[in-house]
């Protein structure tokens, strides 16, 4: 498969839209566990990225630079908990894409591995802490092992998103240990983590993007 800078920007555009659509939902999840702003924060960050996509990134062909701008823009626009987390994801991923205008399946796999490992390193959360890591880490493991087996990114990523979905759902049954909801104890049970949800939305949007790009 081939994935161009244009496709990458379509992916980012799609995320912008998905986050707008889920702004209320993500905030609602965060009202139960935290301070109720996760949807607002994601929206602010991705709207800022959207501006970049419509201006200085319009002609940008370097996938690495696109990711650097995305990460930096997100961080500068939101701060918050997710600012450094997602920004680190994009900045680490940017290294994989450096100087590339077309990406192979291997590049894409390496991107997501770097993306997720970066977030894990930045936040220090472990699987089971009821954070976005519960979505991302199973996705990473699934992606790595399946890609190794078949060398088919689309198949591997499809599996990976399924694993992410399970991980996201698992957060309902977890006690909070990180972030704003950590003091909730028992009361955090039954509620899905907002960051785990936004992380799933990003992965899922990447899957729908590569599928739509492929069928073209």
């Amino acid at each position: 498969m081939k994935f161009s800078a244009v496709d990458l920007k379509i992916f980012l555009k799609n995320v912008v839209e998905v986050m707008e659509d889920n702004k209320e939902y993500l905030s609602e999840l965060d009202r139960k566990l935290g301070d109720g702003d996760h949807g607002v924060t994601m929206s602010i960050g991705w709207q800022a990225i959207d501006e970049k996509l419509n201006e200085e990134l319009v002609a940008e062909e370097d996938c690495g630079k696109i990711c650097i701008t995305t990460g930096r823009t997100f961080l500068s626009a939101v701060g918050s908990s997710v600012g450094p987390l997602y920004a680190t994801g994009f900045l680490r991923g940017a290294k994989v894409f450096q100087n590339k205008t077309e990406l192979t399946g291997e590049d894409l796999k390496d991107f997501w591995v770097a993306f997720i490992e970066g977030i894990k390193e930045r936040g220090g959360a472990e699987v089971g802490d009821k954070t976005m890591i519960d979505t991302l880490y199973p996705a990473l493991e699934s992606l790595k092992s399946n890609f190794e087996k078949e060398q088919d990114f689309v198949n591997a990523f499809t599996e990976s998103v399924a694993a992410a979905h399970k991980g996201m759902e698992s957060t309902k049954d977890l006690l909070s240990k990180r972030g704003r909801s950590s003091r909730l104890g028992e009361r955090s049970l039954g509620n899905q983590d907002p960051g785990a949800t936004s992380a799933y939305l990003i992965l899922e949007t990447f899957l729908t993007t590569i599928n739509s790009v492929q069928t073209v």
Binding site: V40, L75, A77, V78, G79, S80, S81, G83
Partner: peptide
């Protein structure tokens, strides 16, 4: 100064 209830970014 960050957004409402959100840490400011490093900048």
């Amino acid at each position: 100064v960050g957004n409402i209830f959100a840490s400011p970014p490093p900048d």
